[in-house]
Design a protein around this nucleic acid. Structure first.
Length: 677
DNA sequence: TCCTACCTAAACAGAG
DNA sequence: CCTCTGTTTAGGTAGG
């Protein structure tokens, strides 16, 4: 008889009353209560919203049917009582007062009022019919359109949000704010929906008892619904599938059909429903859902946007969604390359998640730490001691290390409870002290700045040797300075400030620093009024170690011509991509300069995926974590525990605030190797 | 095996 | 005399 169009429903009410009950169930019962899965997802929320919107539409539709039945009853009674009705085609615009009032007032007439009018027989059946239809139009235009509009807005927002969610990490903040806004909007929408249902109830549409017997409805040949309304009804009735037309009471409920044509309802039903399945099968999806999904695909496919394929490194132009699909299936089919790229993307996502977790933990630790710290009395401030301010945020000091504002509280040891002394971390790092043979600066002009920026907390707190040569570090220190020049002591300070590793064995590494400064031509000593400062001759630095990257001359050119300092990560990524004959990632997908170790992860992954072995990456293995790749120092002698490498904060934050770390002198002239064995 | 890059150690010198 | 700074040499490791 009646097929419920809800995708989740298999109930087939045998009458309008049953349908009412059924519809009421769908309308009044939150979809979430009917769905067993407790997990909240945006996808299911979209579906819920769609279903609920549809249910409301159907409910209005059904309520109007009841009103029509009342009208027909009245009509029949009038005909039986011999009351002559005027011409049926008479659609005189001059309506009576109640109609005008109804037209002028934004409020629709409640069924109670309507019935009252009917009972009082103030109007002729034709007028009543016109009135009813206009009421329908009003109601639909005011409620459905508004509701639908908002629904679509919300869905758009959802899709937009979903689209952004899969994008670049540097948009994470935007996404977060969008999520917030979206959730607020979602709440508003849910409230709106509830208000809508409530208003329907107040208007009496929901108070109509569905238990009353279904009355046979006579098709109405006259009284065309306005075009606008028809369009709305199309949306509403298109939910019905063509299968409905096979029902034996098909014409009783299909208002659109009866309004358009009383003779061939099934045909018009097909006409009115362009989404009706051609094979006669029941479509479990509402057309709105289908169009939505199509829209969803065409507008917010994660791999398609602005007419461009967003497959990493592709950027192929696709005029429409169909061509994009073709392109996707042809160019990005399941092959080695796609698999490798997919794995890279997985690494990216994993890394982002990892980073997010780390940052969350870091934030929590910071907040906890600062909260306690604020109540802790401070003593012995040393505002001029740069080195003692290692606990400061490096982001500030990095941009302008010498203009770093020092609060009186910073030099003191953090209040974070020191659960474990330095010995804990040195049990590992002690064994790591020694010659370092693999450094990322040895290849590709590695992302030293981004790596340091990314892992600054790690380097600051963990006694892990940075995977860079002394020359690279010295250069980095100098370039980070505002005037691109540093005295030797300032270089020392940078080392100790940035790296916990260089807070011991000072004589050793300082000697190395001096040695490097003197040895390499790229470091230029400039006599100053106060003494001498060291600068970097970038040309000499690039010349110093010609990049030997096989297989891609353009890359070599790129590496040597580009400013490695500005785009180290890009260089590393480009090197990786070029080495593996993989198109470069788009600037959007690789533009985040903070993902220092991501480059290593990608390179590593690609090396593994493409089986392009590089001798410098001999320790690469599929199972290795990116962080380990960033710190290969420990690989040979004693590999870091992955957890320690991945989550340095929890372990490290507390481990390196040894009492002798607050003053320069404490680690400057520390006896070498006294604790090495 | 050789070369190169890098690290470490150390000697040395000059300035403050 | 000591420390800091800067230079130079030597020995070693590791990778290409």
């Amino acid at each position: 008889m009646f097929q419920c169009v809800f995708s989740s429903s298999v109930l087939q009410p045998h009458s309008t009353s049953c349908l009412f009950k059924h519809l009421f169930y769908h309308s009044a019962t939150p979809a979430s209560q009917k769905q067993p899965e407790p997990i909240y997802s945006k996808k299911t929320e979209i579906q819920r919203q769609t279903v609920r919107a549809h249910s409301v539409k159907l409910f209005i539709f059904s309520a109007l049917q009841v009103a029509r039945q009342l009208l027909l009853q009245q009509q029949q009674q009038q005909q039986v009582s011999g009351l002559k009705s005027p011409k049926r085609n008479d659609k005189q615009p001059a309506l009576q007062v109640p109609v005008s009032v109804a037209m002028m007032t934004p409020q629709v007439i409640t069924p109670q009022q309507m019935q009252q009018i009917l009972q009082q027989q103030v109007l002729s059946p034709q007028q009543l019919q016109v009135l009813l239809q206009q009421q329908q139009a009003l109601m639909l235009q005011q409620q459905l359109q508004e509701f639908y509009k908002k629904q679509q807005e919300q869905l758009q927002l959802q899709l937009l949000q979903q689209q952004h969610a899969g994008k670049q990490p540097k948009e994470q903040q935007q996404v977060a704010t969008q999520q917030l806004a979206f959730q607020q909007q979602l709440l508003q929408m849910q409230q709106l929906q509830q208000q809508h249902l409530l208003s329907l109830q107040r208007q009496g549409l929901l108070t109509i008892q569905p238990g009353q017997p279904a009355l046979p409805l006579q098709p109405l040949a006259q009284g065309m619904i306005p075009a606008e309304l028809q369009q709305l009804w199309k949306e509403v009735t298109s939910a019905h599938t063509a299968e409905e037309t096979t029902g034996n009471n098909h014409s009783s409920l299909d208002l659109t059909t009866t309004c358009v044509s009383s003779s061939a309802p099934s045909k018009t039903s097909l006409i009115m429903n362009p989404h009706a399945s051609t094979n006669g099968q029941l479509s479990v999806h509402t057309p709105k859902r289908e169009s939505l999904s199509h829209e969803e695909h065409s507008h917010s496919h994660p791999l398609y946007g602005h007419g461009v394929c967003k497959w990493p490194g592709c950027e192929a132009v696709c005029e429409d969604f169909q061509s994009f699909l073709k392109h996707l299936n042809s160019e990005h089919a399941l092959d080695d390359r796609s698999t490798a790229q997919c794995r890279v993307q997985m690494q990216v996502v994993q890394q982002l998640e990892l980073q997010l977790a780390k940052d969350k933990e870091r934030l929590q630790a910071m907040m906890t730490h600062l909260h306690v710290k604020s109540t802790e009395p401070k003593a012995a401030p040393q505002p001029l001691n740069l080195v003692s301010s290692v606990t400061l945020s490096k982001s500030a000091s990095e941009a302008s290390p010498q203009s770093l504002p020092h609060t009186p509280t910073t030099p003191t040891a953090p209040i974070t409870p020191v659960t474990q002394g330095p010995s804990v971390i040195t049990t590992t790092s002690m064994h790591t002290v020694g010659p370092i043979r693999r450094r990322y600066s040895d290849k590709y002009n590695v992302p030293i700045s981004s790596d340091i920026a990314q892992n600054q907390e790690f380097y600051k707190n963990a006694e892990v040797r940075p995977p860079f040569t002394y020359a690279s570090l010295i250069r980095q220190a100098i370039l980070e300075s505002p005037e691109k020049q540093l005295t030797l002591n300032e270089i020392y300070n940078w080392f100790t400030r940035m790296f916990a590793y260089f807070r011991r064995n000072a004589a050793t590494w300082k000697n190395a620093v001096r040695h490097n400064l003197s040895l390499h031509k790229c470091f230029v000593r400039v006599e100053n009024v106060k003494g001498a400062v060291w600068t970097v001759d970038e040309v000499e630095f690039q010349k110093r170690r010609p990049q030997k990257i096989s297989g891609n001359p353009s890359l070599i050119k790129n590496m040597q011509s580009s400013h490695a300092y500005c785009t180290p990560l890009n260089a590393a990524l480009q090197a990786s991509m070029a080495e593996n004959s993989i198109p470069l990632y788009t600037t959007a997908s690789m533009g985040n300069p903070t993902l220092g170790n991501l480059a290593s992860a990608i390179r590593e992954e690609l090396n593994g995926a493409m089986e392009h072995t590089n001798s410098n990456e001999s320790d690469s293995s599929p199972g290795r974590s990116p962080m380990q790749a960033v710190h290969p120092v420990h690989v040979k002698e004693e590999p870091l525990d992955p957890e320690e490498a991945e989550g340095p904060l929890s372990l490290v934050t507390t481990a390196n605030h040894s009492p002798d770390f607050d003053h320069d002198r404490d680690y400057e002239d520390e006896p070498v190797n006294e604790d090495m064995e």
